[in-house]
Write a protein that binds this DNA or RNA. Structure first.
Lengths: 237, 237
DNA sequence: CTGTCTATCGTTAGCAT
DNA sequence: TATGCTAACGATAGACA
């Protein structure tokens, strides 16, 4: 048998950062780089003890995700903290201030604000017209302030969910734990099974290195399933 | 003057993937690796033409995020798509299903909240005109200029777009529209101005390479601002 | 907190399985 | 479609600005 001579791979070649033309290559690159990205994320988690959530939609439009401790809680936290000014707003001075206040609010404060939101939602429920009045009344204000009133509903779902979780935690432990809402989330998670949130079934954990491992759920249809990654962390908690 | 002799850096040293003890080191590493992570993400975006959202809470508990085209729409898409998939499929009994349940359980509560919100929106539809008026009124102003001034406000445009889209969908279909709210948001976004979601002010775009660029808004206090990254992509749209 | 510099370490493109 | 292989490329620890 004659060995093919020119085999020693040319090694990694430089590629331009532009959309890969060859569909086949693209798929392989996506897989590899996605793994690499998640690994980097897990390392960052472990090294710095921070929370990270990553959501990726593949070329085939499949959702992949990485999260520590889990995607949902991090997303909730982000959405709750980032978005918009609050509603107790009413008469305070500059809106900018309101935004700052809202953003700076500790989790505890945020919790209370969320409670307000929930209450407000209840009120809204009873009389949709109230909102109409509010909207019209607020027309005299800057547009975004008005929008906030409306937009709230879109986010309310998430806020409420967050509130529920926060409330649970509050019940369990007096207070202050919310500062580490992450910790709480982890606690919740670990109480059920694993310290990390992993939707993995056949994931493979490599020995002494942190590895992302992946779950593959056979989708009912192409768009049906989500691929989620966790990671085997060391003693972060 | 005598040159210090032993200076040539020892180059990169191997480090264990475990929590970095030195607070100072940790901070530096976090910054660097976060940048690296975001860069990797942007490359993956460009190379494979996919959508990615990353949320990171720093050791100081500051939220950083990367998103293409934007965090919110991707998150929405993920949240909307993840929960429901074939829940009612219901009689398989395989491990697969358990995972499905587990996954769904994590969002079950949210799901119900969502349903509530949907109903709420249904009611809200009656107040649709008010919203339209608000929207139109806002378009007459330079709302986007204002957004630049305040980070939070930027979210509002997106949120507003989402809400409006939700409203449309509500009109079209009675329920379940939230599943697709993301796509709508994206459409809205691109039609309005920029194809990419970037809360950047003083971001610097490097020449021929995709670079994450960052906005830095002077925070009122340490926890005050949110850092969000976009990236200058090529013709993804 | 981000940028710069250097020597290394880790990632990965192209192939093959 | 996902790994294994190998060499080249890119990321980055540590020190400093």
């Amino acid at each position: 048998m004659v060995m093919k001579i020119k085999k020693p791979s040319q090694g990694r070649q430089k590629i331009a950062i532009a959309k890969i033309p060859k569909r086949n290559n693209l798929q392989v690159t996506f897989s590899k780089r996605r793994s690499g990205l998640f690994k980097k994320a897990s390392e960052l988690c472990t090294l710095c003890g921070v929370e990270i959530a990553i959501i990726v939609f593949s070329p085939a439009n499949k959702p992949f995700s990485f999260g520590h401790p889990e995607v949902d809680s991090i997303v909730d936290r982000f959405v709750a903290r980032n978005p918009y000014p609050n509603f107790q707003a009413g008469s305070t001075g500059s809106t900018q201030q309101l935004v700052e206040v809202h953003r700076n609010a500790s989790v505890h404060e945020l919790n209370m604000q969320l409670t307000q939101v929930v209450n407000q939602l209840e009120a809204e429920k009873k009389c949709g017209e109230a909102l109409d009045k509010i909207s019209k009344a607020s027309e005299k204000q800057c547009w975004w302030e008005r929008s906030v009133e409306e937009l709230g509903f879109h986010e309310l779902q998430i806020l409420k969910a967050s509130l529920e979780e926060l409330k649970k935690n509050m019940t369990k432990q007096a207070n202050g734990i919310l500062m580490e809402s992450s910790a709480a989330a982890v606690a919740n998670c670990s109480s059920s099974s694993s310290p990390f949130f992993m939707m993995n079934i056949n994931g493979v954990v490599q020995g002494d290195d942190l590895r992302c491992f992946e779950s593959k759920i056979k989708p009912t249809n192409q768009l049906g399933s989500a691929y989620s990654f966790g990671y085997a962390g060391h003693s972060l908690f």
